[in-house]
Design a protein around this nucleic acid. Structure first.
Lengths: 149, 149
DNA sequence: CTGGATCCCGAAGGATACTG
DNA sequence: CAGTATCCTTCGGGATCCAG
């Protein structure tokens, strides 16, 4: 969530593919620095260990801190705090504390946050479709490596 | 690329939302462990600092090692090697060495690799659309924090 | 219950030198 | 040119204790 932005700050693609191909094959290439930069930004938001899991939980409705923690499972107290803070900061999640005792805080996806679900489902769909192929490739690669040693 | 899978290996969602909501609002929720797990897998592939940049470059056609390095800019020799190896291992990129002198190696997206471009463009599109909103949210959040100190 | 602060370890990743 | 090996620094992230 931090490593990339530094590298990206001074990152200007040296040369776009001369004569933007956007008209020719708009769906075949990712061409252009803008796309890469933009995609990188999103990955900085959700590319860490816990964010998508949390978003996944929150997509089911407003949830309290400890509920999220149990639902995600395996996340430390501290990391959940940080993850949520990041989401709130980026406006993807709203945080509404109740002055009850014991205190209670609800987290909920904002409109912006919900708009992210679609892209996530696309990724998820791709993963479901191609996960097997990926595993296969890995297996093949690994056995190939160890045998030719 | 490694941190998550360990956590995810033993990660079984404790309880799916009782009575799967899949029929009701299939496009509004990310519900289900499968989706989260799958999405997590993809993020393990492309969630690191360099992979998408490399994929972006390769989406324009076969490219040599040093070309990629220059095109990406800021990536170290070592990390590019590792990134490419990961992509090759997962079957997203093919590696074809030429026994010329000096040696030359071309990297190219495989069919599987190209199929990933679409999802990436979706993410990229979302980022382009909402990047401003994210920046705004961050700015608001940060100023709010520093002022109420 | 939610959140902050500290400590600490292991992994990520840059720099550099070496090999084919 | 492409790839490997080593060193060294930084940082993510878990455990733990403290506070409101």
């Amino acid at each position: 969530m931090t490593a990339r932005q530094t590298a990206q700050a001074q990152k200007n693609f040296p040369a776009a593919p001369e004569k933007s191909v956007t008209a020719a094959k708009p769906l075949e290439t990712v061409d252009g620095a803008a796309h890469c930069k933009a995609t990188g930004q999103v990955l900085d938001l959700i590319g860490d260990k816990w964010t998508i899991m949390v978003v996944g939980v929150l997509s089911r409705g407003p949830t309290r801190f400890n509920e999220i923690m149990r639902a995600v499972g395996g996340v430390s107290h501290r990391m959940l705090t940080l993850t949520l803070r990041g989401l709130v900061r980026n406006g993807l999640v709203s945080r509404t504390p109740f002055a009850t005792i014991p205190p209670r805080v609800d987290y909920e996806l904002t409109e912006l946050g919900r708009s992210l679900i679609e892209p996530l489902k696309v990724m998820s769909g791709w993963a479901m479709d191609n996960g097997a192929a990926l595993e296969q490739a890995k297996a093949r690669y690994d056995t190939a490596q160890s045998s030719e040693q």
